[in-house]
Amino acid sequence: MELLVCIKQVPDAKDVRLDPRTNTLAREGVESIMNPFDRHALEEAVRLKEAHGGTVTALSMGPPQAEAVLREAIACGADRGVLVSDRAFAGADTWATSYTLARAIDTIGSFDLILCGKQAIDGDTAQVGPGLAARMNLPYVTCVQKTRDVVDGGIEVERMMDDGYDVVRLPLPALLTVVKDINEPRVPSLKGKMKARKADIPVLSAADIGAEEACIGLAGSPTRVVNVFSPEPRGDRKIFTGTAEEQVDQLIEHLRDFL
């Protein structure tokens, strides 16, 4: 089973700041980590490889220093890492990113299953996974909490819902985005770390993947961030006390005032 995992390097959530001029995330001087949801996607890919054979390729689009998360992915069980990096990609939104990743995947090989984290903790859009599936014309399921079985060229998964889960069977090749409940990621192994240290991480440019200039980076991104701000704390709050019934009565009474 040929597996590919999309991994994003993100600023550590413990230390998030905005650049007041550009309204984008300040990345200077902030420690970078592997997007936590992507760690779960990687772990699932490695487990599928252990159960069914094959290889795991970790793919990241980002600045040259994003190579670090690909080495980490190799330490955690990926067979190889590929970095897509070019100044021309800068400023990409989810539309341009999914295009770029799709071009990169077409360039590096063919895969039975592509796994992504549900979303990245910096942008929180949850759009790149489904966007990538659409670009590649693949069936996909988001918010997968369990991969049940791989049978007859298909895969059966559980999609997390607000109340319970759906069981979805889809043919391969396909794409999944995963939630944290799917597994508990392993600690990188010693042999993995040694392999990661020596690994050769190829870097693909816009030209290498045959990307059209108009589709990548800022030029290929219809999204414009108009303003980012911390919402003002709302002053008017009321806390009801008493038994549940009393609180409900008070709440209804209070809401009536607004009608």
Partner: peptide, 8 residues
């Protein structure tokens, strides 16, 4: 075991 520590 998965982290290879038993092998050191």
């Amino acid at each position: 075991a998965r982290a290879d520590l038993f092998g050191i």
